[in-house]
Design a protein around this nucleic acid. Sequence first.
DNA 1: CTGAAAGCGCTTACAG
DNA 2: CTGAAAGCGCTTACAG
Lengths: 333, 333
Amino acid sequence: MQAQVKEVRKQMSSERNRVTIMDVAKEARVSVATVSYVLNKDPRQTIAEETQARVREAARKLGYQPSALARSLRVGKSNIVLVVWPESVVEGGISALIEQLAQAVAKIGFSLLWQFGFSPEQQHLAANLAPTVVVGLVDDTDKATLASLQRFHAPIITLANYGFVRVGPRAQVEYLLKQGARPIVYAAPEKPQLQRLSHARQEAVRQACRDHGLPEPRVITVSLTREKARHQLAELLAVQAPPFAVCAFNDDVAFAALAALSDLKIAVPEAVSVIGHDNTMIAELCIPPLTTIGLDNFDLSERLIASVLSVCQGGPVLEIGLLRPKVIVRASA
Amino acid sequence: MQAQVKEVRKQMSSERNRVTIMDVAKEARVSVATVSYVLNKDPRQTIAEETQARVREAARKLGYQPSALARSLRVGKSNIVLVVWPESVVEGGISALIEQLAQAVAKIGFSLLWQFGFSPEQQHLAANLAPTVVVGLVDDTDKATLASLQRFHAPIITLANYGFVRVGPRAQVEYLLKQGARPIVYAAPEKPQLQRLSHARQEAVRQACRDHGLPEPRVITVSLTREKARHQLAELLAVQAPPFAVCAFNDDVAFAALAALSDLKIAVPEAVSVIGHDNTMIAELCIPPLTTIGLDNFDLSERLIASVLSVCQGGPVLEIGLLRPKVIVRASA
DNA sequence: CTGAAAGCGCTTACAG
DNA sequence: CTGAAAGCGCTTACAG
């Protein structure tokens, strides 16, 4: 009777007819345990070749797909790699990382869960999926997020302690200095989500200036819109006579500055030099080509991925190592 | 004895001390059912105010976080929105969509799972997480993926049937035609992952040319590297004398073409006109500013999100509606 | 070599 | 108004 009701319900909601391990067991005329053993290739069991074949055939025939949910619940963790990206804005170097990480993780049978943004309410959602490892794309300066990450019941890989924010801006300043001691202007982005990171880089620029006996850098915001950027640069030029150097938050901001300076007929780098950060595709293609900082993103991705794979396979969290900034010299500075 | 072993194991692996609903029940001195009822605000139950307070206090005190895994297993589906992005390359318009979707979905307590790439082996992984809805960022031309998507036991939202690939290229050709009947060259990207989409757009360009009685368009590949792009454009110029028009796969490719033409001292748009596709930030900032196609990406995101929210809350899949391409006229064509 | 059974942490009809 | 119990689909010690 009970069973009958259930049968009826099954037929009503068409999606309910999921093939379970029990169906396979019944079809292959073995126990569910045996099915689990052969499908998972449990090395501690020795199952007759003939039985194995029968199980596999049944699974294939029924189109059996094990439930990741049930498996994870039983085992205590899921085959999920959770990536937390609090800035919640996909820009610059992150794009390449996304692609590479996705491929690597899929190869070992794990799923990639991205958490963009990290408000308190969002934090526990993904955490409750019991990820095997969480990758926090977070640097030293975001203490709050770093602290939250500690609450996950999983190994954590972060970008802290590798000089992620500090090392690039310093390289910008030192290159600029080497080219001649112009006043330095830090160009910040407009996007609200980037402000925290920008402030950290700005602080690093300020510190580098101080270390080299340079005056306090002026700070402006440069929008990624041509007209706005032009106004912003024009305002700057009203209070800061060339020659000076623009030290940009990233290549996008530098690109906007370049466009504005072109509109204002200011010669780059003769009157104003511009240096970017990230060495994205834009840097090479803009006019004039942009001098910028490459953070060895490829290396970073590789090491990050190596660490993720290590943890997924039961190993330790690997050290990323200090990031080595490289100045990519082109025409703009 | 059994229990003792378990206790020991608990202490050994520090992560094991997860607070469960049973702990909360014990602390609040009620049954687990009651805990579930008050924490989920089950409207069919009327629990004494005083009991509720006790339960909530216990949950707070113990830092209880319900297991999404167990909940999903029991209920039959998880609070996961799965986004399948087979091209596996984050470019152009997708970035904004990522951010907006993430915020909207988090707001209703769901998690966003991204699946970049969609090889057969990758397909079932995420599917087994029993997502509530799967968003396939897939257009009409990718029949294979579209078919695979049907196998998910969940409502599916795709980009098929909205003219996603067809409508943009046609607008490019028609604008170019309006500016004067120059020969048209289709500029394809180099990235392997973009080839399928590029072929679809190329085909749409060809079809549009045919419909308007224009000759078959020539096709070249343009790399996102300055030197390569220069060589590629130089080769083109050897066989195709200006004036002609470059109809680019997207703004990135157009940007590279612009850089190459600048190096080759070819006047844009006098000798060669260039039109992009996507209206990304680059278009407005390059030199000369790029004429391009805006696909109303914001609208698209909004409608996609509305549809996702609808399904998550038990409603139907919403129609996205035909995409309206807009020509954003700037200086390059 | 194979199977019966416990249990992962929840939700929800059902009984009281 | 509250609780005991079944069951979601697995894995894995344990017994045979």
